[in-house]
Simulated scan of single mutants.
Amino acid sequence: MSATPIFDVPPAPSVEIAGGAGVFPVRRVFCVGRNYAAHAAEMGNEVDRAAPFYFTKSAHAVIPSGRAIAYPPGTRDCHYEMELVIALGADAFELDEAAAMDAVYGYACGIDLTRRDLQAVAKEGRKPWDLGKDFENSAILGPITQAGDFGAPDAQAITLDLDGRRVQEARLSDMVWSVAEIIAHLSRYYHLAPGDLIFTGTPAGVGPVARGSVLRGQIDGLEPVTLTIEG
């Protein structure tokens, strides 16, 4: 006898694939911390070069580019963080770096919203960052460009404009941990699979959004990500 669910749950979110190639269903969201040395420094931290570290977001934190959202609840200091996002299209477990890139389906521009005040309280108390990082509408994703159409992440420019003013600017080559290194390392601890996303960290220049803010993030070769914070 099969059990009947007592209520319905929303379907997994999905993200547009550039060129009209369908949609990419989101399974899980991993995020790399402190992957740009300049950003780590501006937050008063040093990069641990022994190994990358991670936090996660719920899949239902993901929303597509172009949305307008309310200012996030429970915070007075919500920050933008522009990132390269890896979209996985194959299983990946205990891979070496040489094989890691075979698991990549494509790449996208992403914005990681952070309730910085809540994150700071958690860090001070040596507690998890969940309240600061994992909340509704906090992972904004542009259309995914297939890996063959983008090439290898290297020296492409990554930028973010806030209300028409450039606030973040770096190169993907500034990342402490490369895409291959991240996937290989993460695959030691998880059975990665199609639908998994990896936000790869943000450059220096993070700062607060306000009601009415308009954000536009770009990476050379990828479609931009945009977001409006409602007034």
Rank of each mutant, 00 (worst) to 15 (best):
D8S: 15
G151D: 07
A155L: 04
G89F: 01
P64S: 02
H191Q: 11
V167N: 00
Y71I: 15
F53D: 15
V167R: 02
I69K: 01
D77P: 07
D220M: 09
P143S: 04
R166G: 02
V104I: 09
V225N: 01
G19C: 06
L222E: 08
F7Y: 11
L160D: 10
H185S: 05
V206R: 01
P52W: 08
T4E: 15
D112G: 07
A51S: 14
G89A: 02
A61P: 08
A184G: 05
P153N: 10
D134F: 00
D112F: 05
A68D: 13
A70T: 06
G195L: 00
Y107D: 07
G132A: 09
I6A: 13
L95P: 06
F7E: 09
A210N: 11
D48M: 08
R28M: 07
K133V: 13
E124H: 11
F53Q: 08
D48R: 10
D117S: 07
V167T: 05
L160E: 06
T56G: 06
A204Q: 08
V9L: 13
D112N: 11
A184W: 08
A51E: 13
I17E: 08
A68H: 06
I219L: 05
E230K: 15
G44V: 00
I219P: 02
H185Q: 12
P52H: 10
G148N: 11
R76Y: 10
A92M: 03
T114H: 15
S187A: 05
L215W: 14
N45G: 02
I140W: 08
K133L: 04
D102N: 15
T226E: 15
G74M: 09
W129V: 05
I17K: 03
S2R: 13
G142Y: 10
L197A: 01
P13D: 01
I63R: 00
P224T: 11
V47K: 06
P5M: 13
V206Y: 00
M1F: 15
G74W: 12
R76A: 14
A38S: 14
G33K: 02
L160K: 04
L118W: 12
G148R: 12
L160C: 13
P73Y: 10
S58K: 11
L113I: 10
I182F: 04
A155V: 03
D102C: 09
Y71M: 09
R49Q: 08
V176L: 11
E181D: 14
G125L: 07
L141I: 15
V26I: 10
F93Y: 04
P52E: 07
P25F: 02
N45K: 05
E16G: 00
A59C: 09
W177R: 01
P52Q: 05
Y189D: 05
C31M: 09
D48F: 03
T228Y: 05
L131W: 04
M43K: 03
P13A: 00
P128T: 02
F199L: 15
